[in-house]
Design a protein around this nucleic acid. Structure first.
Lengths: 335, 335
DNA sequence: CTGTTAGCGCATTCAC
DNA sequence: GTGAATGCGCTAACAG
């Protein structure tokens, strides 16, 4: 006789009402006489009764928890989104199951599956590439899904993000205005549409609008790690780049340090512009000029969007895609 | 007729066996004839059956999910721990419900409650202060709890951490060996035992062993933010400090930048040693000397510890506290 | 090795 | 307003 979990039934007995009534007061159903409500509430308090969310989930088919698939919590870009998601989630009484995917398809599929098995009411997916298999699985489920801080190049799924093409164009234009004509484009895998289809497009737009030919030699494809950026300097130098647009902040810090550690002066010899304006941009010297994205808000809006879908509310204008405003902030890494 | 969720019963019927048998194959129970197992598996595959984890949880009283209470995912120190936790969790087939607390007692209590309502099998708590109320609540539950990357000064709860006293003593001793005798101690709130009882003790130990008197003026209490560190330089200068031990990396970067932006040379004019060796320490220039902690491992070990508790395994030697080894790495911020 | 029978704790009709 | 009765989908004895 150890863990005597107390149930709705115990409360009903003690309060001398039926479990239906207890259920009503617990769920805020108005059809309860104030007096009996009070009585029940007292018993609940006295017995320290806490409704079992699992049983509730089974009976109501709602778990009030949403799944969040994230490449890596350790990455500030994603954790910032996650923070926004969690805040709004708890505002709406949801909890989040957080699962790291390492942007690896197998893990993503695996996680998606267990999330669905756990009957989450919705899913927020962070990741820059929707593989065919993943697309198929998401298509198949009736559980609402929204992409946060990324987009679906097939425009099939709901998503929240900024306009990457325009943002990059603006950033690169600034570099061009400073007289640079050999500007490197440094991004994560080009297999990700966000890089190949959007950012690169913005980069090309800026160049062409200024009559500069795009030199494939200046396009650098790496992973998103700090280290990859750090070792890039020799390559940048060999192609004569005098500036760079970088698709990720950690990566950009790597580029910055790689250059400076090798004796280059930033921004005198080399200018750098990065993409996410995470805290990192202000921790380094010189501070990094950056496209600004409302990271926290992207997460928050994504979650808000998801609640609407879960409630089957009309999403205004039925827009699948929410584009949040971006900005551009000049700091020490550019002239 | 929309979402025709298929249940264990459908599988049983199609496979012409009882639901008990289906349950057995799903749960890997060996007591099933290979032939029927195969048959059932086929049907499961054909029907694309996915066991409902909620129903399972209700019936088995196990949810295979653990709650993780974290001050702020956005902080690299904590997200590093969280990553270790999640990896080990998924290794053991658990999922984690992640909840931000902002180190705020009300939120912690609130989150703890909903986590328990959701019937998590265990909880990992990150936070540097266990208030009385929180202690009471944790005492009351039978759900196992372990503290990750912090400790309980009352030594009541299980926890995983390094030896803060010794680590800080070593770091401060290094500073002393470089000839500093006015060394600032900069930490988060002294209301947190980790700061007031352990780190400060280590600091004092180092001083006294070297015959240096402890000057209260050199003890700075702040919050953990970058900004707080950044604005501290004037105060440090006014008390004549020539070096500082800092209790948090972001904070330390703030101190570093504040000093350098004001024209001070690090480490020539001022030396800095920080505490967590998170990625940040290598992103700044000069790189920060730091106490090293196996952040990921602390998270991983915490989760492993928790699985043992959840399985009621004998925890070797019945140790409540697991002390992981720390280290000290000299980098550019010290002579 | 396999089927039958009970619940797990609660939400939810449907009567009263 | 309130109670009685069902069932959510599955696990866990208990038989056989």
């Amino acid at each position: 006789m150890e863990k005597q979990t107390i149930t709705i039934y115990d409360v009903a007995r003690e309060a001398d009402v039926s479990m239906a009534t207890v259920s009503r007061v617990v769920n805020g159903n108005p059809n309860v006489k104030p007096a009996t409500r009070k009585k029940v509430l007292e018993v609940i308090d006295r017995l320290d009764y806490r409704p079992n969310a699992v049983a509730r989930g089974l009976a109501s088919k709602k778990t009030t928890t949403v799944g969040v698939i994230i490449p890596d919590v350790t990455n500030v870009y994603f954790s910032s989104l996650a923070r926004g998601i969690d805040d709004v989630a708890s505002m709406y009484k949801y909890n989040i199951i957080l699962a790291n995917s390492d942007a690896n398809e197998q893990k993503e599929l695996q996680v998606l599956n267990t999330l669905l098995a756990k009957q989450v009411d919705g899913i927020i997916f962070m990741g820059n590439k929707i593989t065919d298999e993943l697309r198929k699985q998401i298509d198949k489920t009736k559980t609402p899904v929204v992409l946060a801080g990324s987009l679906d190049d097939k425009e099939e799924f709901e998503s929240v993000h900024i306009n990457y093409v325009d943002a990059v164009e603006e950033a690169v234009s600034d570099l061009i205005n400073h007289g640079n004509d050999k500007i490197a484009f440094i991004s994560g895998p080009l297999s990700e549409p966000i890089n190949s289809k959007y950012r690169l497009q913005g980069y090309k737009n800026a160049l062409s609008k200024n009559g500069i030919a795009c030199d494939e030699e200046l396009v650098f494809e790496t992973d998103y790690s700090y280290h990859s950026g750090e070792i890039l300097w020799p390559a940048l130098q060999s192609v004569g780049a005098t500036a760079a647009y970088v698709g990720d902040d950690e990566l950009a810090v790597g580029v910055l340090n790689g250059a400076q550690d090798a004796g280059a002066k930033v921004p005198t010899d080399f200018e750098i512009v990065t993409s996410n304006n995470s805290k990192l941009t202000e921790l380094v010297r010189p501070k990094l000029s950056s496209i600004t994205q409302p990271l926290y808000d992207i997460g928050a809006v994504s979650m808000r969007f998801l609640t609407k879908m879960m409630n089957k509310e009309e999403t205004s204008a039925d827009e699948k895609t929410i584009e949040l405003p971006y900005g551009y902030i000049k700091r020490g890494s550019t002239k």
